[in-house]
Design a protein around this nucleic acid. Structure first.
Lengths: 180, 180
DNA sequence: CCACCCATGTAACTAGTTACATGATTTC
DNA sequence: GAAATCATGTAACTAGTTACATGGGTGG
């Protein structure tokens, strides 16, 4: 289970509320791990019960906002977990299931869906390149943390670029195979 | 939910038992969708109840083996599902969570884990290349179905190659940052 | 006869999703 | 004052995992 550890890492980078975490998961962290706000709130409650984190009401006491911070035992837990053997990577992409169905009983007009998918990849790529420009290319010297975070971002960039390239090839094949 | 549709596709390619499906999921289909035998048996029962498939006892009647085949309504369901809009791709890789934790509180000695991960990618790539050689490169002319299946395999090959390349870069960075 | 593979399942659990709910604050 | 955003949650469900169980057939 990675979510609590993703949350611990995020909180170590900066203490914040569940709501803030949910928004962060829509951005940087969300590129390799997604989570809904419901899941995050539930997990934060568990982690607080486990003594990994604690929360204080926001200084602006009129809201229900609670700021969470990591306790030493949370850091210990994170270190313990990082050292655990990496379990095989889960590859689950519905699009390939669809494509294989099309191969079996098609043509089912996958080109349209493929183009929508390419647009999504295009958008993701653009947003990653923006982050790259803003956070990593404009600085002369990067800290250790920044260099590693840059490598993570690069993995995302490479993935999206490759998906786009592959999709382009597939599109050409589909057009050639099934002229509409 | 893709599992029932992955099973439908697989059964359309060739009628077989739940056990056979489980083994097939360890091979070709398993590269983009995994499932345990428990899950497959449960799903097959549901699909039979829904009237998408039917089963007959194996001719060799001494075993409990049941051969499943797709019914017309199963084909309809598959066609309906393929046309559904592709939902955003789920990217969930625990390794990136670990790496980000290492960036925040490390160094935690990720190089070792990274090398294990690279071995897994290496093995997967080798097995894909073997399939490529056996099923796609030795044939002069590929059918439509084969050409699309080849594209799916190529996606897997490209993914593993890229992961390896990226991992190599990361390894070099880690060695440089954290000389042990 | 022991280990391994074939073949099918049940039960209990965990993680993740979807739908619903509430109230305060900010912005137009 | 309406709409959007901030902020937190509960409840019910679904998909996927883990552990356990059973019995027949095959190879050494």
């Amino acid at each position: 289970m990675s979510l609590p550890h993703a949350l611990l890492t995020s909180l170590l980078e900066k203490s914040c509320s569940g709501y803030d975490l949910a928004r962060r998961f829509d951005k940087s962290i969300g590129f390799f791990w997604q989570a809904s706000h419901q899941q995050i709130y539930r997990e934060l409650a568990r982690m607080e019960a486990a003594g990994w984190i604690f929360s204080v009401a926001d200084s602006n006491s009129r809201t229900k906002k609670r700021i969470y911070s990591v306790l030493p035992s949370g850091v210990d837990e994170l270190k313990r977990w990082v050292d655990l053997p990496t379990e095989p990577i889960m590859q689950r992409d519905e699009f390939f299931v669809r494509l294989r169905a099309d191969a079996a009983i098609g043509p089912l007009g996958m080109a349209e869906q493929l183009q929508k998918r390419m647009q999504i990849h295009q958008l993701k790529l653009a947003s990653y390149l923006l982050i790259e420009q803003r956070d990593f290319l404009s600085h002369a010297k990067l800290t250790r943390q920044q260099q590693i975070q840059y490598m993570i971002l690069k993995a995302g960039i490479l993935y999206e670029q490759q998906q786009l390239q592959w999709s382009q090839h597939l599109l050409e094949l589909l057009v050639q195979l099934d002229p509409h």
